[in-house]
Design a protein around this nucleic acid. Structure first.
Lengths: 194, 194, 194, 194
DNA sequence: TTCTAATCGAGACGGTACGTCAAGTCTTGCC
DNA sequence: GGCAAGACTTGACGTACCGTCTCGATTAGAA
């Protein structure tokens, strides 16, 4: 069909307006009430312009939050892996409690039924941060602070699983998440035996 | 609106047909393609009959899977808490990998944007099982197998977070989840200090 | 698809509102600017309701004018076939010069590219009136006023062709059409030889 | 707007390609499915190039058929006006039954809602041929073959009305039109009284 | 023969309307 | 009187074209 538009001729103004309108509307009315039609109207743009550049609402919303995440989830390296993780996780929790988090929640929901969105979430959000995290953990392993016989991917799941659990199931308020304690607890099983 | 229908006069045949059609269609076409219209048609039922008894597609789907979960996630008590948890978690993973899990995934997605569904999920699925788990953990605490100074709710998050992480983010195949190892690792931080 | 709706359950109110809005909008903005969307909005009706009952804009517009033609084009029978035809044709011309005619013009245009509309025009408008005309002509034949060896269909073409010619090609104002003279001229070739 | 392009610098290649593509597509898919976009693509031309030189699809299509009509509808003059008319009308019928006729039908339809097209049809098609016909008829009047007291325009309507009637209303197959008989019949009323 | 300005192809753009789908409500008999 | 059936209003979907608007790249006339 439309084989692929030419990115150099893309209107920067429209691109920006669409992303801004998407995020704005998603925050204001909730992700589930977000419609392409409303985005087009709010951005002062025709619907086909949106469909030309994004395959679906989910992917568009993902892009709109991805650029807003910035460096908030970068990993510090003070040498103290427990403190570094606690600090980063604290930032993640704060992010998830913000508008960005609310929209992200909707995108993850969308991803459950749309493999394209699921893939985009992994590529744009999950994978890069997982790799960053693995890199930090590997430095800790090298420094003898963590066991070398546990795959770092598994460590990541232990560290971030509980956050997503609260985030997506809403069993407890995510804002109350005690990053320091939870990291400390998780690391008990990850430290080298004396 | 319709102030509330009289449950006594409810047609058992329709009730069953609706739940079965819901689960069947959700499995066959994927939850995201599930529609009330199709359910009504497949169940040989009018749409109002569905709306009379369920407030939304999400709640209906939830009921259809809840009755199919049965005792698969009950907690054994052999005295060995690690083994018991590993066994139960293994059952959970298997359940999540089945048709029931696929539909459950869709229901959780729905819950992100619909507080009513979110509440129903907690009431029908999360809370009862969490409580069951807490009960088992508390017996382990009493038996001196686990630390008494950690809230069991927190333990639950540590144990189940990683599963939902894989389940909903799809970073790794959930089928490969090594319940035994993950439980063992988590318990490291939960056992009493010598 | 939608196999066929049940006509007895049809909403009379919507039916009327749609036909009225169609005619009204066609007259106000011109047939070529008529849209289903505008009709639905003006009639306070959903688009699917229109598509449920009419296959296309052309057929809908046709129905809206057909019911407005009434008895204006009925054939009198005073015994004088020339006078009767002139009088009826005069009525036709007046009709074509009215709002109904303006919309009819659009419907005929639509029919050029849509066989369904073309068939509907013939069934609803052309054929019944042609037959009425033929009946009147056959009485004149029986009365010895017209030749018996010319098919009445051919006579109809001779009588009405020039009107449609002006109507659709706009070579001369249709309002100036001199029905009496044109009928008289046409009948010259249709009268029995002395 | 664009004040008017300079015809001297016009690309002859594009001009031809556009006219050919227009006619070709109109014939292949039917006039009503003809789009400027498809013409541009088929002609290997940008849309603005079309809009620069033609105000609308209708006018463009008209030009594409006008140049294909050639001398098929010229009036012979053998001295026998009845035979000459029958022969010319026969050619017209054949033309209307051809691809050119099919497209012409669409152009006339377009003309019903677009005064610009209507005017162009008259200027390019109707008027010149009407005048040619009038010239032939006037020679017949001068030769005493036709009455002098009937405006030749009126005669034209009587002669061509029935053809357009069949052509546009599709009551009978145009191909069966018996030009000889119809002309003979019409002339009965146009010949001088003895 | 070079310069330069109009025309060209391409195609993205803001729009409008399309015809469809499903949502949730309302209405009408059947049982 | 609850139920099936299904018509209803509503609103969003994703698509097709519209006619306008940049863009460079020819390209042909005037210099």
């Amino acid at each position: 069909m439309t084989p692929e538009p030419n990115p150099v001729r893309r209107s920067a103004r429209s691109h920006r307006a669409i992303l801004d309108a998407t995020f704005d509307l998603a925050v204001r009315n909730g992700y589930s009430k977000l419609t392409i039609e409303a985005i087009a109207a709010a951005a002062g743009v025709g619907k086909p312009t949106i469909y030309r550049w994004w395959p679906s609402k989910g992917v568009l919303a993902l892009e709109s939050i991805n650029e807003r995440m910035g460096t908030a989830t970068d990993f510090p390296d003070t040498g103290d892996v427990a403190a570094d993780l606690a600090s980063q996780i604290d930032n993640v929790v704060r992010l998830f409690c913000s508008d960005v988090g609310a929209v992200f929640k909707g995108v993850i929901a969308e991803a459950q039924g749309d493999p394209q969105v699921a893939a985009a979430v992994r590529e744009a959000i999950t994978e890069p941060r997982t790799r960053q995290c693995q890199a930090r953990l590997e430095r800790a392993v090298a420094a003898g602070q963590l066991r070398a016989d546990i795959p770092t991917r598994m460590m990541v799941e232990q560290l971030y699983g509980p956050i997503y659990y609260r985030f997506l199931l809403g069993t407890e308020p995510l804002a109350d998440y005690d990053a320091h304690t939870m990291v400390e607890r998780a690391l008990e099983g990850l430290r080298p035996r004396l």
